[in-house]
């Protein structure tokens, strides 16, 4: 479990970016951190692996205070994929990029090879094995950054803005992938603005505004609450916008998928028309 107790943080004296945040990320959680630009989301997750230490309060990763552990020790458990892959990638080939952390964590050559193969396959990057990360598109770089972290098999996987630069199909693959590793028991935390992406993940949302956690709850609750949507600078998912006014006719509010929506409407439209 990652536990934040009354955490406050300032980059500059007097300007608090996180304000008195208390939360728990439990093992097996699938969590989406959402909220406006500048709400403190990235600052929050940088506390999870000790990259940032709280100005006040404390952060415990499996009962170890991040103040008394090194980032290297914490990273073995808490893998963080940065928002901008250019800040993370530096090797000459995709393969070397993935091997780098594995070598540092002391994996042997056979293990490195096996894990590299595995993550390249998982993220559809096999054809880029020998390519320079710098020549890849933004979306591909993002997947390489994810692969390089996933390779050392961290217990907690934290990803900052995984959908940026990914097209529709890649996003849908990513959603399936994250849902699957979450079902297998890995703890997954994503920071994202992508309402439609989150709407179809079965995850919990942690909503932030101005350095505080202002709400937390399942997707069906948070993404149908107009008040919270406004406070978090989000927009309602498109289909919720459609179904919200229909709720007085007995339709559910929390409809996120097109198939579900069309079935609901097809079943009921004829009935309502006759009525």
């Amino acid at each position: 479990m990652i536990r934040l107790e009354k955490v406050s943080f300032s980059y500059l004296p007097g300007v608090e970016v996180l304000k008195d945040v208390t939360l728990e990320v439990r093992e097996g959680d699938f969590l989406a951190v959402m909220g406006e630009n500048g709400a403190g989301k990235t600052t929050l997750i940088k506390h999870f692996n000790g990259l940032l230490k709280p100005t006040q309060g404390r952060v415990l990763v499996d009962d170890v205070d991040t103040g008394s552990a090194t980032v290297a020790e914490l990273s073995r458990k808490v893998g963080l994929v940065f928002q901008n892959p250019d800040h993370q990638l530096f090797s000459e080939t995709v393969e070397d990029e993935i091997a780098f952390a594995l070598k540092n964590f002391g994996f042997n050559r056979a293990e490195i090879e096996e894990r590299t193969d595995q993550v390249l396959r998982l993220l559809s990057l096999e054809e880029y094995r020998q390519a320079s990360p710098l020549t890849l598109s933004g979306g591909e770089k993002k997947r390489v950054a994810l692969a390089s972290v996933l390779a050392w098999d961290p217990k907690y996987l934290i990803i900052d803005e995984p959908t940026i630069g990914q097209d529709y199909e890649q996003k849908s693959n990513l959603r399936k992938f994250l849902s699957e590793i979450s079902r297998e028991g890995r703890t997954v935390v994503v920071v994202t603005h992508d309402v439609e992406f989150v709407a179809e993940c079965s995850c919990k949302i942690l909503l932030m505004a101005a350095g505080r956690v202002i709400a937390s709850g399942p997707v069906e609750e948070v993404l149908t609450d107009r008040e919270l949507i406004k406070k978090g600078a989000l927009t309602l998912p498109q289909l919720v916008e459609v179904f919200d006014p229909l709720s007085r006719l007995g339709f559910p509010k929390a409809v996120f998928g097109v198939e579900e929506a069309s079935e609901l409407l097809m079943e009921n439209l004829r009935r309502l028309k006759r009525g």
């Binding site: 097209d167 529709y168 199909e169 996003k171 439609e196 998912p237 498109q238 289909l239 916008e241 459609v242 097109v258 929506a261 069309s262 409407l265 097809m266 439209l269 004829r270």
Partner: peptide, 19 residues
């Protein structure tokens, strides 16, 4: 591959059934 907006896709499916 382009990610059709969900309302557009929903509309298309219902239009197919003449609803």
């Amino acid at each position: 591959g382009i990610g059709i907006p969900k309302v557009a896709e929903l509309h298309r499916l219902l239009a197919e059934k003449n609803l």
